[in-house]
């Protein structure tokens, strides 16, 4: 049996599932197969109001990776915010730079806090090396401006997600854009001093620790720092893709 036949069988199992357990199993199997043809079905599974199936579908889409991005951008559901949040999560997990505009728009303007949360997270997991080298800095500044704004969102979880992304961005630009990086550390300190939410403040402390550890490493490993800048790409940090 080739991949295409297998995909058809697994897709049919998802379409014919008549209970939430069967749906979950079918989506898990389809996701685990990692076949490109399954992308539209996996995206549809994000809208079935079955969180287990949605998690499996997101994992499957992330595993399929870049080839799933155009469909995700195209099929994103404007009318079902729960499905939209899962789709944004998949885009964030893939980290594909083509999702930039969708993520920026969603993080700043979506009415659903779970969509804003997932998008805020995604802005910190973008793979900068996909961008043309001459565009990296301007895009990073654009993302930074957005994150500074989003880190003032009225919902704690969106601010929390923005802090995680400010952390990764601060580390990514520590060497290339030190002035911009200090805007991030200033904003983190401001949140720590003023945020009403203990969970958000705690996440800021953790971010500050991570950023300091990074600076420490750079002080004690100047050679590696040079090598990194010569590559003119910011290495993608694998952490937090899910």
């Amino acid at each position: 049996m080739n991949n295409s036949d297998l995909a058809q069988i697994l897709i049919r199992a998802v379409e014919e599932a008549d209970s939430s357990d069967r749906l979950l199993d079918a989506v898990q199997e389809l996701a685990a197969a990692g076949i490109e043809e399954s992308v539209p079905t996996l995206i549809a599974a994000l809208g079935y109001n079955n969180p287990g199936a949605a998690v499996a579908a997101v994992d499957g889409l992330i595993a399929i990776g870049e080839v799933a991005v155009p469909s995700l951008l195209e099929l994103i559901d404007d009318y079902n915010y729960s499905a939209r949040a899962w789709a944004i999560r998949a885009l964030a997990g893939i980290g594909d730079a083509r999702a930039l505009d969708t993520l920026l728009e969603a993080a700043k303007t979506d009415f659903s806090l779970s969509v804003r949360r997932a998008a805020a997270r995604g802005l910190g997991t973008l793979r900068w090396q996909q961008l043309p080298a001459e565009k990296v800095e301007s895009v990073q500044i654009q993302v930074l401006e957005a994150l500074l704004l989003i880190s003032q969102d009225p919902e704690w979880i969106v601010r929390y997600a923005a802090v995680t992304s400010l952390e990764t961005l601060a580390i990514a630009i520590a060497v290339t854009l030190p002035d911009q990086a200090s805007r991030i550390t200033n904003q983190l300190q401001r949140i720590l001093d003023t945020d009403a939410d203990l969970g958000v403040r705690t996440r800021v402390k953790f971010a500050q620790q991570k950023i300091q550890q990074q600076q420490h490493q750079e002080v004690f490993a100047p050679k590696r720092k040079l090598e990194n800048t010569e590559v003119s790409e910011i290495p993608y940090r694998g952490a937090g893709r899910r």
Binding site: L24, P51, G52, V55, S82, R89, L113, S114, R117, W156, I157, G199, T202
Partner: peptide, 15 residues
């Protein structure tokens, strides 16, 4: 198996 939003609120309680 539940919505991430609810898991996040729960974990925030732990944190």
């Amino acid at each position: 198996l539940a919505e991430n939003s609810l898991k996040l609120i729960s974990l925030k309680g732990l944190l």
